[in-house]
Simulated scan of single mutants.
Amino acid sequence: MTTVHVEPLELPARLTAPPRLTQRHPWLLPAAMAAHRARRRTQWVRDAWSGRVVWASHHTTDDLPVRLKQHGSLLLRELSADQMHLQHNKVTNLRLAARRIDGIVIAPGETFSFNRVVGNCTRRKGYVDGMKLSNGEAEAGVGGGICQIANLVHWMVLHSPLTVVERSEHSFDPFPDKGRVLPWGVGCSIVYNYVDLVVRNDTDQPFQLRTWVGDRYLHGQLRTDRRPARSYKVEARGEQFLRRDGQVFRRNQVWRRVIDRRTGDQVGEELLKTNCALVVYEPAPGVEVIDVD
């Protein structure tokens, strides 16, 4: 009989903290969001004036010669019939966001901000109601679904020497793994403009993002001018579903292995993230759920 080793379940503070003021009084949410956005805009201006941050803004349609990483993610998930129209609307939103990102070059010393490049997703710009996640539930919201392109960019960046400065993830695991290609726990949460994906180029070479929407997939490429000396392999370890007090939690660790391109040898590895989230669906039959105290 095999014994499964289970580390104590330590929940992130965001899952154990008392309800936020805006959760207790939802009418305060617009004011809170306005304050967060004003704070972020002030930070952007301060960083620009001080010269501490140089924001990537140059686009080119000429591909840099080396394709370092490419990925495609399925546009439409199989959800309930009453949610599929939001999935189709999401494609419209992704197409608009992809055009804003496509071709941007992150030069040495520059920093890429998803929110600065894509901007605020408003109806005036053509964005429509897509699926957004709020407190573990799917709901309609203008610009919903653009997290998918942030996930794509983040995944490609993890396979490069670029530095992830800022990235937030969802507190909930909202959907089963049917059709999942990327490891669970490498996604991003985006809320304009204060929940962002920010990437800095600390190398001596430029990197270029290409993004576009195809018939079935959202496509992305990360390109550069010469192949770096190292490559990267990203993987999830220690995947577990745990039940405590009637709730199911999912956890894992995301690791990155560093490979010397010349020899093919692994020269290092790093723990990128320890994930733990509340599961808001019933795990499929065959998925082991371990009861813990």
Rank of each mutant, 00 (worst) to 15 (best):
T60D: 00
Q23H: 15
E110L: 04
A32K: 13
R261A: 05
S113K: 07
V287M: 02
M84S: 05
H154P: 03
V45H: 12
V117G: 04
V280F: 12
P65F: 09
L242F: 05
P108E: 05
P228D: 03
H59F: 09
T203I: 10
G51T: 00
M131T: 08
W155A: 10
M1I: 06
E7Q: 13
V234R: 10
K233L: 11
Y281T: 02
I101Q: 09
I106Y: 03
A229H: 11
A13F: 03
A98S: 11
N151E: 13
S80D: 12
C188E: 13
V165Y: 00
E282W: 05
S57R: 03
T211L: 08
E110Q: 12
L182T: 12
L133I: 14
N252W: 00
R77K: 04
G286D: 11
F114N: 13
G143F: 01
E169C: 12
C147N: 11
V213T: 03
Q266T: 15
N135W: 14
C276M: 02
V128T: 13
N275Y: 01
V254E: 06
H219W: 03
S57G: 11
F175Y: 14
L79V: 15
L64A: 04
P108A: 06
A229Y: 08
R230T: 13
P176W: 01
P30T: 06
Q208S: 10
W55M: 12
E10Y: 14
R223F: 06
H71G: 14
H25S: 11
F241T: 04
N252L: 08
Q221V: 03
H59M: 08
W212K: 02
G264R: 08
T203C: 01
R216I: 03
M1Q: 10
W212Y: 09
L11T: 11
